[in-house]
Design a protein around this nucleic acid. Structure first.
Lengths: 101, 101
DNA sequence: ATTATAACTTTGCAATTCAAAGTACTTTTA
DNA sequence: TAAAAGTACTTTGAATTGCAAAGTTATAAT
């Protein structure tokens, strides 16, 4: 059993990690807020969002704010579990003990 | 200022993250131990090691154990700093507060 | 009617990742 | 002593990923 097998490949990327982190601490975050937060182009953001949605880690909700369209995202139960597992794996990785032998 | 700018791109990869983690808690680790620990092919490991060495994050030391060649690696001061900064950024990312407004 | 905003999709190139094969050198084994 | 095996790579090549830029659709403001 390798020490890195619990590290989720989906979260290898900084943008996806950032999206997930933002959604873990906020009930929902919209497209432009994420875009600003992560300093990425909209095409790039959209593609990472798509990747997370494909994994069923996040949920897309389209709405209107006044007369403007607004798309917001939230993390699913599965996404929460996956992210927590990832963080735990990172912690273990970092705090692992020296192995003797 | 983006919330992900302190996340080090070099550590986006699980293998490199694993190498660094192993070297942070062990004074040195040799090639075959890393290979086993991370469950990668030797070519793949060698290339990730090379990438870390190129950044001056790790140091290569060749020696003999008995009659066998043995290559071991250790983390440099720069590597330690970079890794710690990365971990700190991850922590901040995860524990960030809801921003109002 | 033109311009702007939102949230994309498409395109296409560049960088990354990885396994597999090849290499050089040494050592062990038959 | 010839063949096999181990160490630590390098090289090759193909697949995947990442990204910016441009294009798209639809509505809204001017």
């Amino acid at each position: 059993m390798s020490i890195i097998e619990n590290i989720n490949k989906t979260f290898d990327n900084r943008v996806r990690l950032g999206i997930m982190a933002a959604l873990m601490v906020n009930e929902s975050v919209d497209f432009n807020t994420l875009k600003e937060l992560l300093a990425v182009t909209d095409g790039n953001l959209a593609s990472h969002i798509k990747a997370l949605e494909k994994m069923d880690y996040i949920l897309i909700q389209k709405q209107f704010i006044g007369k403007k369209t607004n798309t917001k995202y939230s993390v699913t139960k599965l996404g929460k579990m996956a992210f927590k597992k990832h963080i735990k794996a990172l912690e273990q990785l970092i705090t692992q003990q020296k192995k003797s032998k």
